[in-house]
């Protein structure tokens, strides 16, 4: 029996989940910069103002700290706010609220103040937006206890993870890669709420486990196709949730392939791939046939010209090269 599917985009899947939440739960409301009249910087919230009105689709001033903090307060006050920060780059202006309040209040108050807040933001590079508009800081946020960090890479996850985030009593930061909004594909109508504590194996393979998430998933899958022709089979794990990390799925896969390659758009030093590599080493060191490897963004602010931006970001070519180097390594 094939599941019922409909053709849509990542953007529309997100919008559908927002519409569904606004319809089903009177506690849900949206706020953020240009989400109403403008329709959303990436058009995710387009048309929602007309459907739900200004009380529930709230355009905010350019005051990231105030409206993220107001989201926290509204969550404490019994609402289910969904805050859109235009991009992760601007989230830095709300870092005090995210780290000192959203992530902290529940523990510091001994459970009295859970913060059921969803913060969505666009992330990533690849559009020649230069250094201040091209950050990938989700790995950085994944450092923080008290937050849940999700990065849907697929259309089903765009809807399902947003649904899950709204059911979660904790602050959930949802990172939507700017390269994914226009992605077309099938939405599994009956998919339901996603599990936001589990990674997903998007392609099985015997030789190397590739740990990745977000838009990098598609570069890894492309590399896997190319490598398959050369007889190297990648197992591509979509982490989906960056905090908490699904160690069980990760380690089980690495034990099977005996090699682990991390691919992410963050900077290498102190980044998410560093954390993943360390977990592999801690938990599967004696199962490894080769040193772990990382393909990350060059340690530079992302430059504007396309050739330099491309050179800075993880590419299919770099993933393929890393895979070759790993299998060439004598166990």
């Amino acid at each position: 029996m094939s599941a019922s599917v409909s053709r849509t985009t990542y953007r529309e899947a997100l919008r559908g989940a927002l519409r569904e939440a606004l319809t089903a739960d009177p506690r849900v409301f949206l706020m953020g910069e240009d989400i109403g009249r403008y329709g959303g910087c990436y058009a995710v919230t387009k048309s929602l103002l007309a459907e739900f009105g200004e009380e529930r689709i709230r355009d905010t001033p350019l005051s990231e700290s105030a409206f993220v903090g107001a989201g926290i307060g509204a969550a404490l006050g019994g609402m289910r706010p969904i805050v859109e920060i235009m991009t992760v780059n601007f989230s830095l202006l709300a870092l005090d609220q995210i780290l000192n309040n959203a992530a902290t209040l529940c523990h510091m108050s001994a459970g009295q103040c859970p913060v059921p807040l969803v913060i969505r933001m666009a992330t990533g590079a690849g559009r020649q937006l230069a250094a201040q508009h091209s950050h990938s800081l989700e790995g950085w946020y994944a450092h923080i206890p008290g937050l849940r960090i999700v990065a849907p890479a697929t259309i089903d996850d765009a809807r399902g993870m947003l649904r899950a985030a709204l059911l979660c009593p904790d602050p959930v930061l949802m990172f939507e890669h700017i390269g994914l909004f226009n992605m077309e594909g099938d939405l599994t109508e009956a998919a339901g709420v996603a599990d936001i504590e589990r990674a997903a194996i998007r392609r099985t393979g015997r030789d190397i486990t590739v740990l990745t998430y977000g838009a990098s998933l598609y570069r890894c899958l492309e590399a896997a196709t190319e490598l398959s022709a050369a007889g190297i089979e990648l197992e591509v794990v979509d982490l989906r949730t960056l905090r908490p990390l699904d160690d069980a799925t990760i380690i089980k896969s690495v034990r099977r392939t005996r090699r682990a390659l991390m691919v992410d758009e963050g900077w290498k030093s102190g980044g998410l791939s560093a954390e993943l590599g360390m977990r592999v080493v801690e938990q599967a060191f004696f199962d490894l046939d080769a040193p772990v490897m990382r393909v990350c963004t060059a340690e530079v602010p992302i430059p504007y010209p396309k050739h330099l931006e491309d050179a800075a970001l993880p590419s299919v070519g770099r993933i393929v090269a890393a895979a070759h180097a790993m299998v060439a390594h004598e166990p």
Binding site: F67, G69, A70, G77
Partner: peptide, 17 residues
Amino acid sequence: GGGLPIAAGLALAQRLR
């Protein structure tokens, strides 16, 4: 200054409810 936005949110919740 960190408490001010939270107070605004608590007040917003009252109004929305």
